[in-house]
Amino acid sequence: MSFLLKEFGDSAVLLTFGDHISKEVHLQIVSFVQEFKKLEVIGVVAVIPAYTTITIQYDFLQISYHELEDLLFSIDYSLKEETHKNIIEIPVCYHDDFALDIKHLMEYTGLTKREIVALHTSGDYLVYMLGFTPGFFYLGGLDSRLFCPRKEGPRVKIDRGSVGIAGSQTGVYSVDSPGGWQLLGKTPFNLFDATSDKVFPIKQGDYIRFREISLEEFNAYKK
């Protein structure tokens, strides 16, 4: 178990733990980030964990490349048992008003809408990483019966909270943005709220569980 360290510009380093998505690599990264943060190293500006890599930005006026390198290789991130699953429930309304691509999804998968919703709400999805837009998470664990390629042409604007499928991934748009995912619902739950105490309610390593709500519940949730 080891990682490769590379220069990433003059004020960051890139740590690579593997070359494909795997839960084992993911757990190593989560553990490494936890242990590294505990050290509160002076001069570390930001840590950006991803699927198989960690980018660490540093201020070389405060810590040199070689000091940082030595420190990173001294970290013990051996895997502990996954004792606690942090599961976050996200309410999703699958009403036709929001499920803009449900017809295409039904045709492509050969499933009924009820079957699609049942499968989508059945599992716990692991948050492999965040990125793309503020609060957007990349999930693993979508049932293969729901796999569906993204739309041929992206929509110009997709509302924040829209839930979609793209290839083997499922996820939630965290801000209004263009995008090509096949939409099957919408959540009133905010993945990113700059005015809240907890700006980002979800972090790497959490699990997401989608729970179906009615249009009435959706509207009530919004207040």
Partner: peptide
């Protein structure tokens, strides 16, 4: 803002 990059927030 640097510290929120791990949540997908640009600087």
């Amino acid at each position: 803002r640097n510290e929120y990059q791990e949540y997908g927030m640009p600087v």
